[in-house]
């Protein structure tokens, strides 16, 4: 298997096309850096403003008219706690640091997702287009091993891209803003209900952010890989994956009232919602989402593997 994966890696990284795509991601990183460098850093009067905000929040919590729902009250209370923590520990809300820059860059996954879709959507079907699939399948290696080695190579490519994005943005961010502050506590703008300020460092949060991003890339890569192995056409695989992903995301956001949607793949793919957001449906947990994703991916593989290993290579 090691040899087979090595072969697939060779075929990915030796092609100029791969580096053009990776170059686009690097270019977007540099553009981000230019914008970030131009941004106004810390407002000098942030302490006064934050103090004002805290006073406002305290006023609201007193709730003279009694209209505040228990849910709203707890959210307000939570925000107050975090704002107070920020003030006490001298952490200005808008200051740009290398980690914040890196975190912001992880939010721009669209381009990386497209790059992964192109690589994964092409990796099986291109062998058919080149005619090399015949020489590949008449080796003393089962088709299942070929299927797995190519899949692992696509997952490793996503990993490479995420490491490049994380490492590159930390490096660029470090050059612009300095590297200190990775041990600072992580203070989200919208804190989770049960979060205690100071328990999560920004370094840890960054790992979680990039981990979630990697998982997202693996999901879209798997879809593209499935279409590539099943359709034997790169164009079809890449187009279908983009359509399926776009429609899937839209459906996930457009049906918020139907609780069955929690079993929809794209309702579960943004894992960051368990760390710094609110899951769309009650009862959704990190474990639940991971399980849903696993079931979907296994289903995709069952279909694609069956087609790839069973069908005739006649052309």
């Amino acid at each position: 298997m090691g040899n087979l994966i090595q072969n697939e890696q060779l075929k990915i990284y030796i092609r100029p096309r791969t580096w053009v795509l990776v170059g686009l991601v690097v270019l977007s990183l540099l553009i981000n850096a230019i914008f970030a460098a131009k941004q106004v850093d810390v407002m000098p009067d942030w302490k006064e403003k934050l103090t004002q905000q805290i006073q406002q929040e305290q006023q609201q919590l007193l709730d003279p008219s009694g209209k505040l729902s228990p849910q709203k009250r707890s959210q307000l209370q939570q925000r107050l706690t975090f704002d107070q923590y920020r003030l006490d520990h001298n952490l200005p809300p808008t200051h740009t640091t290398s980690w914040l820059f890196a975190k912001g860059f992880a939010g721009q996954l669209g381009l990386a997702a497209i790059v992964c879709i192109v690589i994964a959507g092409d990796i099986v079907s291109s062998e058919f287009a080149w005619g090399t699939i015949k020489l590949l399948l008449i080796r003393p290696v089962t088709r299942t091993k070929i299927y797995l080695s190519k899949y692992i190579a696509t997952l490793l490519f996503s990993l490479f891209l995420i490491v490049l994005m994380g490492g590159g943005s930390l490096l660029v961010g470090g050059l612009l803003f300095g590297l200190d502050g990775l041990a600072e506590p992580y203070i989200p703008n919208v804190p989770l209900e049960d979060m205690v300020p100071g328990t999560l460092s920004v370094g840890q949060d960054l790992l979680i952010t990039y981990g979630a991003a990697l998982l997202y890339l693996w999901v879209v890569s798997t879809i593209a890989y499935m279409f590539s192995a099943a359709s034997r056409s790169s164009v079809l695989a890449i187009t279908l994956t983009m359509v399926v992903t776009a429609v899937g995301e839209i459906v996930a956001k457009s049906l918020p009232s139907f609780s069955g949607m929690k079993f929809w793949l794209f309702t579960n793919t943004s894992l960051l919602q368990y760390f710094e957001g609110i899951p769309p449906f009650p009862g959704m947990t990190l474990g639940f989402s991971l399980a849903v994703i696993a079931v979907y991916l296994l289903l995709f593989h069952a279909i694609a593997w069956a087609i790839f290993t069973k069908s005739d290579v006649a052309a």
């Binding site: 040899n3 060779l10 030796i14 005619g131």
Partner: peptide, 22 residues
């Protein structure tokens, strides 16, 4: 099988190494 279609973007040697690994 039919025309020997090899990886055009690899050298002859790289092609052979690729298949030798299999």
């Amino acid at each position: 099988v039919e025309n020997p279609e090899m990886y055009k973007f690899l050298t002859g040697w790289q092609n052979l190494v690729h298949f030798a690994r299999m």
